[in-house]
Design a protein around this nucleic acid. Structure first.
Lengths: 186, 186
DNA sequence: ACCTGAACACCGTTCAAGT
DNA sequence: ACCTGAACACCGTTCAAGT
């Protein structure tokens, strides 16, 4: 499950990316109900090819999440280098949510009632999660957030914000302001 | 759209309720992906009957939400009678979320990527919303929560909490504790 | 090794026939 | 007025044939 790692043939890799791009684009346009056939068509591949890369819809959702986690891992590492522990925490939180706001496919996948196939993306998740854990820990140790604040709480807030994104609900920034007020120690 | 109000024939009313009950039960068991045919079967009616009462899945979702709103309207009115404005706010919030936690169909409908048919349930929504507005207003006026706290914020927190309910995510109580900390003034 | 798309199975929705 | 369930259309997934 944890990625075979044998480098894909050039065209296969291209197709894989094309499918992911197509899925993201379609998720952004329509909300949530996107068809596998449409994704394949938009990606310029046959449905069979889509299924060769992603065994089912959950697996495709997981891949979308994995790709986003890989992207924000860099952001998290940069945040770790910020001296002020509070500023570092705010940077990952904001950066992560800003990315989520721009990536409807990611949001729908994360909040989907059908759980995404997390097993497919343990690696991608681990990197980001480790950075976040260190950042939250540091902020708590410095007494800048409640002493019991953990990476799990980061996820809670993050899910909460995403539930207020997209379509009608653009209140997530306000939500974040309220939530941070409850976490910060001043 | 806003409810015809002509009282239904006894068997029709019974069927309507049976469908709603069946949908709730199935949503609670499986997560999110519930079939119209299964709902009809569980309710002991033909699919046609289901569609006679609810024009489509969105409309069924709206009805589930409407029914829950009607139920929590009573709770909100009782909360309004609590003297301490903060205690009143906490009572609606907690009561509403406790009800949401126990009603998976409600949660899936509210957070669904397919927007529920709100037009079907303006009335049911209005009563609850009015109570909540008065309660948040009173708490803000009393200086017990941030002075800019509104009923919209109530919705933000509430959606945030629901995004952390069900299945793996039972962290909504912790989430609520964090969020309230950000809202309360002490 | 990887790609294609017609074909199959399943689920949302309709409608002709019933009471 | 309301109910039924077979039938239809659509979408997720498979698989035989191709490069």
């Amino acid at each position: 499950m944890t990625a075979p790692d044998q480098p894909l043939r050039a065209d296969a890799r291209r197709n894989r990316e094309a499918v992911l791009d197509a899925a993201s684009a379609l998720f952004a346009q329509h909300g949530g109900d996107v068809q596998m056939n449409d994704i394949a068509e938009r990606a310029g591949v046959g449905v069979g090819t889509l299924y060769r890369h992603f065994s089912d819809k959950q697996s495709l959702q997981a891949a979308i999440i994995g790709r986003r986690f890989a992207a924000v891992a860099g952001l998290a590492e940069r945040a770790e280098k910020i001296d002020d522990p509070w500023a570092a925490l705010e940077a990952v939180l904001r950066g992560y949510l800003e990315a989520a706001d721009a990536d409807a496919g990611f949001r729908f996948s994360i909040l989907s009632p059908i759980e995404p196939a997390w097993d497919d993306i343990v690696r991608e998740k681990a990197g980001f999660a480790a950075s976040v854990a260190r950042i939250t820990q540091r902020a708590a140790d410095a007494g800048l957030v409640r002493s019991d604040f953990t990476a799990d709480d980061f996820i809670l807030l993050t899910r909460g914000a995403m539930a207020n994104m997209g379509g009608e609900h653009e209140g997530w920034r306000r939500f974040l302001a309220l939530a941070l007020e409850g976490v910060r120690v001043t």
